[in-house]
């Protein structure tokens, strides 16, 4: 009897408590939601003002033309002008060359290094890692100036090649349209390979060693292991690094300006440098500059979609 009543009392009490709690939680959740917005609102406003609003402005500008502040709407004139503009074509071609050669070269090198450096039996592993990562601590401008001097006509690269008999007379690397591009590609690869390598090294830590063991028993050699195990296992991180590298190389500016300044002629000019020149070096034409800048936007979108598709398909 008494037991029964206690049970009943026990039952009653928690129910009532729970009712109260839900009520408090409901107002709590409502309050929390409002407070939650307080945490994020400043960033939302700032990113809207400094990123999204300028994007809209640039889009509107791309249909305007005129010098400096005297802009008027000209419809699709700027867009038509793009295809007949030799400097734009040069900038687009150069940027595409950098992208198509540099990004794959760097990703393959970084993957290769990371696989070699992941071997625990390798001697001087720490030294090699730090050495290859070291270029990442330099600022883009600083290393660009160093590369400019290294590859100068009286630079140390020329001296080295001459002394060891690789060439019979000095090469003016930065004054030759092809060599200048090669120097730019080498420079970017020098600066960023170690950076990407770190991502792969970290990802390799999570790959189960027994998979390689099994592959070895099945008779797969190192090259087969690399393509059939390592690359598929690292696919998400390879995708991530390809996208960030692609976006980075599409916007390349610091290296070009400081190594060759776009020259000789327009042999190394990039899209970003052309936008800068159109806006701040030549008579400012903000409208046309914005049109050119939207080409980068479109390229970023298209290339990201392609990379996602490629990575998705092979799954």
């Amino acid at each position: 009897m008494s037991q029964h009543s206690t049970k009943k009392g026990e039952l009653d009490f928690p129910v009532r408590l729970r009712d109260k709690e839900t009520k408090r939680q409901k107002t709590g959740v409502y309050f929390k939601r409002k407070v939650g917005w307080l945490f994020v609102i400043v960033s939302i406003i700032a990113i809207t003002i400094f990123n999204f609003y300028p994007m809209v402005q640039a889009f509107l500008l791309s249909f305007q033309s005129g010098m400096g502040a005297n802009l008027e709407y000209v419809g699709f004139d700027n867009w038509r002008r793009l295809f007949g503009d030799p400097t734009f074509i040069a900038a687009l071609t150069n940027t595409s060359i950098y992208l198509l050669i540099q990004v794959p070269l760097m990703i393959v090198l970084a993957l290769f290094f990371s696989v070699l450096l992941n071997d625990p039996k390798l001697k001087f592993r720490g030294f090699f890692r730090i050495a290859i990562f070291l270029p990442c601590v330099t600022s883009l401008v600083a290393y660009s100036v160093v590369f400019k001097y290294l590859f100068g006509i009286d630079g140390i690269v020329n001296l080295f090649l001459l002394n060891f008999g690789f060439i019979s007379e000095t090469i003016n690397f930065l004054a030759d349209p092809v060599w200048a591009k090669v120097v730019i590609i080498l420079a970017i690869t020098w600066r960023w390979t170690g950076y990407n390598m770190i991502f792969y090294l970290a990802a390799l830590q999570n790959v189960d060693k027994s998979i390689y063991e099994a592959a070895r028993i099945d008779g797969a050699n190192s090259i087969q292991q690399f393509f059939q195990i390592t690359v598929p296992m690292l696919k998400p991180i390879i995708l991530f690094t390809s996208i960030t590298s692609t976006i980075g190389t599409l916007q390349i500016f610091d290296e070009i300006v400081n190594i060759t300044n776009g020259g000789p002629g327009n042999a190394t000019i990039s899209i970003s440098q052309y936008i800068y020149n159109l806006s701040f070096e030549y008579t400012p034409d903000f409208g046309y500059a914005s049109t050119v800048s939207y080409v980068i936007v479109i390229l970023v979108i298209i290339l990201s979609i392609i990379q996602f598709r490629v990575a998705g398909e092979k799954k």
């Binding site: 300028p54 640039a58 970003s272 800048s293 939207y294 936007v297």
Partner: peptide, 29 residues
Amino acid sequence: IHRSRGKDIVFTVLLLSMMIPFAAIMVPL
């Protein structure tokens, strides 16, 4: 911590700004 559906949508939109090339917004800025 204060996750909600509305905030998740806003977050995704904010992430899109990472794709914006700086050269594209430099003139308006």
